[in-house]
Amino acid sequence: MLEVKDLYSTVSGKTILNGVNLSIKPGEVHAIMGPNGSGKSTLSYTLAGKPNYIVDSGDILFEDQSIIEMLPETRAQLGIFLSFQHPLEIAGVRMDQFMRSAYNSIQKQNNNEELDVLKFNRLLKSKSEELNVDSDLIQRFVNHGFSGGERKKNEILQMAVLDPKLMILDEPDSGLDIDAVRSVADGINKLRSESKSTVIITHYQRILNYVIPDYVHIFMDGKIIQSGDKTLALQVEEKGYEIFN
């Protein structure tokens, strides 16, 4: 599904990614753990194609196709989804309008049926019920006045509606209390499948108690320095990142 090959990238003239290698097969869940400032979010933005995140060398292959020259919308249309650490508030744009616009863009690009307002709202409503998201949220402006937990749940809802192949979740549990973490994790687990891959980027091991990863990677100084199974996350929890220095 995803092959990251010796990836170097720069933001505002500063090199952040220093040779990242990562290989993810369909159905797998990978956790990328690292301390603050290690470049975890840069990796997620580079995968999603944020402007000004410049790839200097290396490559990113998604389903055997290089995506580094592609616009963010093209990557999303191929099936890549980034759940933001800090989801943005979009004043004046309602969730249902935003989601229908996104859904239909992806459908259109993939020669699938676009949905009218009525049909789409039915889809949105059923997804929000599935994920226990308050249906009021979908009538409101995107993330406007949402609590931290609502914003994160809203990211999961968007993911459920857009049905991507690769789900990248940047700190999906940051700032959440334990109930909200559980609820977000439940959402992620519901969306897991044989054909989808998941990348969870996190500082703490906490959410990995609920979303069990197949692989854990330790990310420091812009690259993966060690990989292992879920026990690696427990080591981090116990001893901190210092042991990898």
């Binding site: 999603a48 194609g49 944020k50 402007p51 616009l71 963010p72 919308e73 990557r75 999303a76 249309q77 989804f81 980034l82 933001f84 989801p87 943005l88 979009i90 004043a91 004046g92 744009v93 309008q97 935003f98 989601m99 616009s101 996104a102 859904y103 863009s105 992806i106 690009q109 402006f141 968007q158 857009l162």
Partner: peptide, 29 residues
């Protein structure tokens, strides 16, 4: 806002449509 624009385009919306949404949203209230 470039950040908002990226947020919308990262969901598959073209940058032209994303700008239209943001600008209409600006006057929406």
């Amino acid at each position: 806002d470039e950040e908002s624009l990226f947020y919308l385009t990262s969901r598959g919306i073209s940058s032209t449509v994303a700008k239209q949404l943001l600008v209409r949203g600006f006057v929406g209230d």
